[in-house]
């Protein structure tokens, strides 16, 4: 039984000899909503992949409900993975499957549900994410917003206790972004899961977060609640949340 507690102890990530993330610690309580913000290419997605078991850190431990994810046997790790859901930045939908089959796929492959139960679950997800009118289309035939919603439905199909969202509103218009965030919040309330998300959209981060982490230049800095993050005294956090890059008007004219 997975509760959704996530703990990263002295985790350091390097790739090809280059440090991506300096040693850091992170504790996330069950059902907490934590958002990672920061400039692009600073390692936010890497943190999600480390938590998801997709990228082994160079050193340190990743504990999911006090079990060291990377020390577990392959089978045990797969069991934990089934209790984690992930929405990828580019959705990673199975392009050879239809919309309905993308949701049904994890249920068919990893559970012992009957086909009727699977169909019922798929239909309820399709209705919940507003895709019940396109179940037979393939992912490349639906819009970006619909693909995001399909990705969310697939990530939630196995009732995960930890959900990882990699930039859930990337490339979407503000109205669709808002709808997606509302959808994430409603699902999180419904299934009482831990939510860890990456976003660069501060409005959505404030809407979604209970706690915010700022990832920049290989360091992970905890900035607190949305209100504390707005008032944060760190110059780089300050500039990022206000959408400034540290360049003054004077610099631009000189």
């Amino acid at each position: 039984m997975i509760l959704g507690k996530v703990e990263l102890q002295n985790v350091k990530v390097s790739f090809n000899g280059e440090t991506l993330l300096k040693e850091f610690n992170l504790k996330i309580r069950p059902q907490e909503r934590v958002i990672l913000i920061g400039p692009s290419g600073q390692g936010k997605t890497t943190i999600l992949k480390v938590i998801g078991g997709l990228f082994k850190p160079t050193s340190g431990q990743v504990l999911i409900d006090d079990q060291d994810l990377y020390q577990l046997r392959e089978k045990d790790r797969q069991l934990i993975s089934r209790k984690m859901g992930m929405l990828f930045q580019k959705n990673a939908l199975f392009d050879s499957l239809t919309v309905a089959d993308n949701i049904a796929f994890p249920l068919r492959e990893t559970t012992s549900f009957s086909e009727e139960e699977i169909q019922n679950k798929v239909n309820s997800f399709l209705t919940a994410v507003g895709l019940d009118h396109v179940p037979h289309l393939h992912p490349d035939k639906i819009s970006g917003g619909m693909q995001k919603r399909l990705g969310i439905a697939r990530a939630l199909a196995l009732d995960p206790k930890i959900i990882l969202y990699d930039d859930p509103t990337a490339g979407l218009d503000p109205v669709t972004s808002r709808k997606i965030i509302d959808l994430l919040l409603s699902f999180q309330n419904k299934i009482s899961s831990t939510l860890i998300a990456v976003t660069n959209d501060m409005a959505r981060a404030y809407q979604l977060a209970q706690r915010i982490l700022f990832v920049n230049e290989t360091e992970v800095l905890e900035t607190g609640s949305p209100e504390q993050t707005r008032q944060h005294e760190n110059e780089k956090v300050h500039q990022f949340v206000r959408g400034k890059n540290g360049t003054t008007q004077k610099d631009l004219h000189s």
């Binding site: 939908l93 994890p106 697939r154």
Partner: peptide
């Protein structure tokens, strides 16, 4: 490259077996 292999892993499905 479209992260579908990672998606399989996240669903607890072994890509080699699958």
């Amino acid at each position: 490259i479209t992260e579908q292999i990672d998606a399989l892993k996240m669903l607890g499905i072994d890509p080699v077996r699958f």
